[in-house]
Each structure stands twice: as structure tokens, then as C-alpha cells.
Amino acid sequence: MAGTLVVAEIADGKVKKTTQSAITFARQVGGPFAVVVVGSGAAGAAKELAGFGAQKVIAVDSPALVCEKLAPTVAKVAKDGGFDTVVVTASSYGKDLAPRVAVKLGAGYAPDINLVKVDGGKKLYRRPMYAGNAFGWLEVTTPVQVVSVRQTEFPAAEASGGASPVENASPAPDEPAAARAEHLKLVTGSSERPDLGEARVVVSGGRSLKEQFKQVLEPLADALGAAIGASRAACDAGYAAPELQVGQTGRTVAPQLYIAVGISGAIQHIAGMKGSKVIVAINKDPDAPIFQIADYGLVQDLFVAVPELVTELKSRS
């Protein structure tokens, strides 16, 4: 079948929400699509994906955790099914895997796209470049194409009902590289808060918060049900946990509301949050670059403004 193959992302036998962004892409380009799920517990995870309108969901039960094992299997499923487009969400999982699959398929790769345009059967991919300061329109010249899509720009697909048939397939035989990559362990931060990538509101703090980072920001985050983010300078100084970093080398976020507290607005920070719907900046320097992109700017000492903001939000909720 020609059409799109969506590569699902699973962890601990459960489908990750990122998968639904890749499904959105498949729906946007139109035509038939299938979903492939590779991992342990794939058959169970596949059932979770049966309600999205795919022609079929292909489950490959395999202990694969590393892309050296995943790539040969995804490429095999793509080849066997004759798919012309393979899509995965541009999470670290997708970014790790997609280029290897592209090489296996002799395919051109359109990485981290934020828009697709179908023009007379030809697809054009738009992608942010230069720290988000330019968009390039990319054309893939090979018959088979591999694509990764930005989660922030391809909103999670909703289930559409129906029940796609689930088909089992076997993994591709291991290649030599598989024996030389071993996943040891995953060390996660222990946050009770909403995940940065999915939160509706993000409250981020900069270096200026010093040791009072938590003390100042947590009440504000609590009042708004927000996730907490940070600038790299705040993470580097140890005021905030490293996994909270927002920006080019941290998380890319696009919440409904982003509040930057004592953050100067360096180009690498802005690259990670400028897709937010509404941006608020609190900074005592009226010339801080963050004000150039903020919808609402408050020039004030944050140690005064933030507690006041918490009180005000509470009294008017």
C-alpha cells in the first residue's frame, strides 16, 4: 500500500502522546496511513492506537530500546508495506531514529518540520532554522521520504472512532551495531508538576532568582497549575534542576501562557519558547530583549512583583 507509515513512540508498553502529532501529519497529507509500534508490549500498545482511523496498526513485539535495533525493523515494515512516507514526531526518540531509517530506505529526510503543504501530489516541508529566525521550504527529491514533525506545531490528533485491525509483524534480524549499544538506565527528575512539553501554563525563572528560585516561583506555578521552566543560566548555576531548561538545548515549549521571570531573553532561550500563545515578561531592566517579544511586559523587581502577582491571582480567581 502506498501511503504514510506513522512510527509510534512507546515507553513501558504505553503509547506516548507524541505519537498523536505524527498521526496529525498523516491526516493532513491525506491518503491511507498505517501505524507501526515497536517495543515490548507492542501488541497492547497497538490497541490504544486502533481508534485513530489508520488502515491498520502493525505491532512488533521486541525488547528494542535503542535505535540500532529499532531502525532496521521500522525500515523493514516500511519496505514491506511499500509506504512512500515515514513520519515520526521530532522528540529525542524520533530525532535519534529517523535519520537511520532514512539511510536504510535511501530516502531524503525532512527534519523537525512545522508545516506541510501538498501541492499536486508533491509535498513541501517548512522547517524552522537559524534558531527560529527563518523558515526554509524543503523539497525531498527521493521517491520515499522520511519526516519528523514538531510536536508544538502538530497538535495531538483526537481519536476518530472505529477500530483499525492490529497486525503482528516480526522484528528485523539484529545488525552488528545492535550488540554495541546498550541502554543502561533512565534517570528522571522527580517533579510532581505537569510536564513542560504539555503544560498549558509555564512559569520560567532566570539566574536572577538565585537560591530563592523555588521559593519565589513555586507559589506562582501552584496558583496557575503551571509547569516550571528555567533559563540555562539558572540551571548552570544550580538554582534550577537541569531538566527544567527551556531553549535551544533545553525543551521547546508552546503553552497558552508563558511567564518569563527575570530572564533576559537571549536568542537561544527565545528559540525554545517564542511559539507560546501569550508571553509575559517580568524584568527590572526596561531594555531587556525579552520585552521585544512579550505581549505584556512588567518592569519591576521580581522579588516584589511575583509575590504580589500570586496574591492578586488568588484574590481574583
Binding site: 527560529g132 526554509g136 521550504w137
Partner: peptide, 15 residues
């Protein structure tokens, strides 16, 4: 295998 057909500047986020 891929080539850039054109480019555009993203809409500026007005202050």
C-alpha cells in the same frame, strides 16, 4: 536528496 526551494521570515512577534 533534499533541497531548499525557498525561505521566508517567520512572522515577527510584535512587542
Amino acid at each position: 536528496k533534499v533541497r531548499y526551494a525557498s525561505a521566508e521570515l517567520p512572522p515577527k512577534r510584535a512587542a
